[in-house]
Design a protein around this nucleic acid. Structure first.
Lengths: 345, 345
DNA sequence: TTGTAAGCGTTATCAC
DNA sequence: GTGATAACGCTTACAA
C-alpha cells in the first residue's frame, strides 16, 4: 500500500539524475491503463475494478506519484487560500489573533498562508507582492498607506486589522479604542488620579492615543503631548524605555496608560526600578488583555480584547468581500475592550 | 491604472448574477487583442506597445481580472508551499518556532500554510489530509504515530518537530533534552537539592521525562514515578494543577522541574499559594526559555531553547528531503538547551 | 509589436 | 469497468 511507505527518500527507483516529478501520465503508462483510470484509482471513486485499482496504486507508489495541486486546482474549483500578514509573532497578542483567523478559515475550508512582516513596511510590500499572486484574499496589519497597499495588491481583496473606517478605504475590523479608554480612564479617575500619562507605541494605531487624549480632556485633566512618551518598540523593553523617559519629563504623574500590555509591563518594571511602587506611587493600565498580565506582580489592570474574535471577524469580512456583499462596518466590525481590574491600577 | 482601484466591491460592472472570475481570455476579448498580449501586459514584459498595454490593463481592471494561480503554477514551476502544523498558538513557545520556520521559508522563497492542531490527534489528521494535497512538504508537531501519519500523508515529505531519530522513521529536528537536563539537574544538585520532583506534560515529548529520570538517578537521588505529576495541559493552569497534586503526594520535595516554562510558572504560583516561598522552600526549574520567565517574580531559572533555530532547522530538513539528500541526523538536527539561571532556582 | 499553437497535469463527459 | 477527448487558464516558443 501507498500508505506504508515511510522511509522518506523513498524516491529514485532508477537511481539517476534528479528526475522530474511523476505525472498521472507516467503512472498510467507504467500501470498500462489510461490516465482517467489512474485518476479514478487515486481519488478512489467507484467504477473501477479492484484489481486494476491495486495495480495503479502500486505503480503510483513506485513512482512516488502525487497529483499536482495546480492541475487539480485548475479543474476543481473551490480551493480558497487567504494570506495573513502578522507584524510581530513575539507579541502574544498576534498569535491569538492569528488563531482566530485560522479557526474561522478552517471552518470555511480555507487555507491560510502566513507572513511575518516584522512591522517593516518594505516587508509588508513584499508580502503583498507574493500573496497577491498566491492568495484569494489578504488580511493583516499594515503600516503602508492605502494607495501603496493597493498598488501591491493587484486587485486582491484586503481586510485591514485594527483600522477604523475613517482611516482606510479598505474593509477593516477594528477595536473600539474610545469605548475602552472611556472605561479605563473612568477607573483611574475614580481612583483619584488626576495626572495621567501615556506610553504610546511607535507604529501602532493612532486611535489609542487619540482616545486617551479625548478622555483625559473630557475629565478636565491636565494633559498635552508632553505627557505622552513614545516607546521605540511594542515590547516590555520598549515600555521600560518609554517609562524612563516619561518619569524624567513628567515625574508628577500618578498613573500611566500603556499602548499595550507589553509596554505596560515594561512601565511597571521601570517604575519599580526607579523606586516607585505600583500601584501605590504609580498606577498602570494596559491594553490587550494578555494572559501575561495575570502572571506579573502586581497583576496588570488592562483593557481586555477578544483577539480571537478579531481574527474571526476579519475572516468574515473576507467572506463578504468574496461574496460581493457589503463588508460589515461600524459596531459590527468592532471588538469592544473590556476593563479587567487587577492590582496595578 | 489598475493600482488605483481601491474601493473593494469594485466588481460587477454589469450588476448581475455572481459572475465567474474573468480569465485572460475575457480580457483579451474586451481589449481586442490576443491572450498572449494580455499576458505580456499583465506580467509587464517588454515587447509590447505602451498604448496596447494601457488598453489591456484598463480592460483587466474593468473585469477585475487576476491571473489564476493554478494555471500559472501549472506552467511556471517553482512555487513551493510548506505546511506547518502547530499544536498550541497560545503557548508562546510555538509562535517563536513558527517565526523560525517562516523566516527560513521566506528566505527560500517558499510559502507556509499554517494549521493549528490544538494538540488534537484527529485535527492533526485533518490537517494532513488537506496539506498532503496542498503542500509540497509538511513540518510540525504530531502526536499520531508514524504509521498513521504516513497514511494521511500520501507521500508528501514530513519533518517532525521535537522527535529524536529513535522515535520516528521520518526526518526530524529535536531538542537535546539529555544535555539540557544534565545542566539543569547539576545546578539543582549543586545548590543542595536532593528531593527533586517533576511536573510532566501529558502529550509532550517523552525525552524530557526520561532525561529527568536518568539524571536524577545518575546523581544517586531518590526518585520514582511518584515524584512525577502529570499536568492536564501545557499551561500555567496545568502547572498549578500538577503542582497541587505533587505537593499533596510528595510534600518533601525541595525542587521541581517543569516540563515547560508555562508549567513551571504555574508551579511557582501554586507553591506560593500553599505558603511555600520560591526558591526558599521550593526551587523551580523550567524548560523553554520563554521571555515570560524574565517577567515573573522570582525570575524563572530555565533551560533556554533557541526556538527560532529549531524552526529554521526544520525547514532545512525539508530542503534536504526535497533535494533527495539525506536529512541531517544526530547533533546537526538538535538544538541544545542552555541553562539560564534567574532567581527561582 | 502582435498573434498562433502547443503544452502544463488534472478531471469530467461521454462514448465504448 | 475503461478509455478517448475536451476543457481548465495560463505561459512559452515560434511565426507573422
Amino acid at each position: 500500500m501507498l500508505a506504508d511507505d515511510q522511509q522518506q527518500p523513498s524516491n529514485d527507483p532508477a537511481g539517476g539524475a534528479p528526475r522530474r516529478r511523476a505525472t498521472i501520465h507516467d503512472v498510467a503508462k507504467l500501470a498500462g491503463v489510461s490516465r482517467q483510470t489512474v485518476s479514478r484509482a487515486v481519488n478512489d471513486k467507484g467504477e473501477i475494478d479492484p484489481g486494476t485499482k491495486e495495480r495503479v496504486l502500486e505503480a503510483a507508489r513506485l513512482l512516488d506519484y502525487r497529483p499536482s495541486r495546480f492541475a487539480r486546482g485548475l479543474v476543481r474549483k473551490g480551493t480558497v487560500t487567504a494570506g495573513l500578514v502578522i507584524p510581530d509573532l513575539m507579541n502574544p497578542f498576534f498569535p491569538e489573533v492569528a488563531a482566530g483567523v485560522l479557526e474561522a478559515a478552517e471552518r470555511r475550508g480555507w487555507q491560510v498562508v502566513v507572513w511575518d512582516s516584522r512591522t517593516d513596511e518594505a516587508r509588508e510590500r513584499e508580502a503583498l507582492d507574493v500573496l497577491s499572486h498566491q492568495a484569494d484574499a489578504v488580511v493583516g496589519y499594515f503600516k503602508n498607506p492605502d494607495d501603496v497597499l493597493a498598488r501591491h495588491l493587484g486587485g486582491v481583496p484586503l481586510v485591514l486589522l485594527e483600522r477604523g473606517p475613517q482611516q482606510t478605504r479598505f474593509a477593516a475590523v477594528g477595536i473600539d479604542a474610545a469605548a475602552g479608554l472611556a472605561a479605563g480612564l473612568a477607573h483611574l479617575v475614580h481612583a483619584g488620579h488626576r495626572r495621567i500619562g501615556m506610553l504610546d507605541g511607535v507604529h501602532g494605531p493612532a486611535p489609542r492615543r487619540q482616545a486617551f487624549l479625548a478622555e483625559v480632556r473630557r475629565h478636565g485633566l491636565p494633559v498635552d503631548e508632553g505627557w505622552i512618551a513614545m516607546c521605540p518598540e511594542h515590547s516590555v523593553a520598549g515600555g521600560e524605555e518609554g517609562m524612563e523617559r516619561l518619569l524624567d519629563t513628567r515625574p508628577e504623574i500618578t498613573a500611566v496608560f500603556g499602548f499595550n500590555d507589553l509596554i505596560a509591563v515594561g512601565a511597571m518594571r521601570a517604575a519599580r526600578r526607579r523606586g516607585r511602587t505600583v500601584p501605590g506611587d504609580l498606577a498602570v493600565l494596559g491594553f490587550d488583555g494578555l494572559s501575561l498580565g495575570e502572571l506579573v506582580e502586581p497583576g496588570l489592570t488592562t483593557l481586555h480584547i477578544d483577539k480571537r474574535q478579531l481574527g474571526r471577524l476579519a475572516v468574515e469580512q473576507v467572506a463578504r468581500l468574496r461574496a460581493g456583499e457589503e463588508p460589515m462596518s461600524g459596531a459590527d466590525a468592532w471588538v469592544v475592550p473590556e476593563l479587567v481590574v487587577r492590582s496595578s491600577a
